[in-house]
Design a protein around this nucleic acid. Structure first.
Lengths: 207, 207
DNA sequence: AAGTGTGAACCTCTTCACAGCA
DNA sequence: TGCTGTGAAGAGGTTCACACTT
């Protein structure tokens, strides 16, 4: 169960959400091909992922949804729930906070940071905004382990360094500025311009 | 040059932005290891990508930045510039519009759609908002080829179907609802909850 | 008959190792 | 010598094909 493949972890997150929907509909068991239909992937893929996370279904009834959801929780979540900081409260930062706060999840946004005096001490979707100067202090005292960066690109490397020093273990970078991995910090790049240009490329008529 | 690998296309987008920065600084030529440093990847990777796009550098001076930028443009952009529609003008939709409009790019947001009467006919970052009922009509008359979906998850499959019928060739789905590929439509999923939970998994202390 | 579980083949992407050149 | 260009090996991820179970 230790260190699942990246792609499998991504799908576990998606399985869980789809399975929760099924639970809400009163379903208790599900077959691999049903899960596959929900996510638009192949049944083999589903069974392989389930195998990798060390779970087994039963032949007649398929997989127990409740058990699978709980197991995925054990794999992804921590018992106490992960805390997140958002650095940069522009349009994108606010949208992300708003978007994430309305989801029920073990992941919670514990603090936001900005340097604009008008934003400091304001509350957005029940998240308080602090001055960036307080970043190290707040992150340490709230025991925040994940940072989402939505600042202007120029300051990104500095912010990333400070986050790492403050004890952050994972960074989600929404900025177009590529970031270098730092010792002990997991880095996920999330660059929408790249995604869009990729779509543009594959959409482009080929000679 | 036909159908580059997905990962290479992603990096081309990033090369272009970094190379443009270098041009602004007055640099005219660059070595593969310099590009590699900018993106925090390996020089071999850079040279492989350059090889795949059919370009060559010179041994003493490295690669001509201007030529590379132009070539990447020829690969990704269309002559007339791609037009984009954003469907769903919530916080996220607005943030995306705002964010993309401030970038200089061949990609331009030509229209936004929502069903909230208060938003219809308003202008956000110089993008006009239309009622979703007009989607097919506007997309066809503006010749829009790319759609960004930021609606509530429930309506996503219907929106995707309508976009495909209206002639959209590529969809960027910001929604947590997995979408199935449709004939002739390139699909890119962009699910921030998955990304966050992935970070959470890799951040989690392992026994 | 209709599902699960999985070794092995396959495909995609990255890196190694090195020939070639100014 | 210090770079580029690239065949070939390696790593990561997906799919095939089929044995197994009820």
């Amino acid at each position: 169960m230790r260190n699942l493949p990246e792609k499998t972890v991504e799908r576990l997150s998606q399985y869980r959400r789809s399975l929760n929907n099924q639970l809400d509909k009163g379903k208790t068991h599900i077959f691999s091909h049903e899960i596959a239909n929900l996510l638009h992937i192949t049944p083999v893929q589903v069974r392989r992922d389930i195998m990798l996370m060390g779970y087994s279904g039963t032949l007649r009834k398929g997989y127990d949804i409740r058990e699978m959801v709980d197991l995925i929780g054990k794999i992804i979540d921590t018992d106490d729930g992960q805390k997140i900081a958002v650095i940069g409260l522009g349009n994108l930062g606010k949208a992300i906070i708003h978007y994430l706060q309305e989801k029920k999840s073990k992941l919670s946004i514990a603090a936001a940071f900005d340097i604009n005096p008008e934003k400091i001490n304001n509350v957005y979707s029940s998240v308080n905004c602090y001055h960036s100067d307080q970043m190290e202090e707040i992150i340490a005292s709230f025991n925040i382990k994940i940072g989402i960066i939505t600042t202007p690109p120029e300051v990104v490397p500095e912010i990333a360094r400070r986050l790492a020093n403050a004890g952050i273990k994972g960074i989600l970078n929404f900025t177009p500025k590529p970031l270098s991995g730092q010792e002990g910090v997991y880095l996920e790049e999330y660059d929408m311009i790249t995604s869009l240009e990729k779509v543009a490329y594959f959409v482009k008529p080929r000679d």
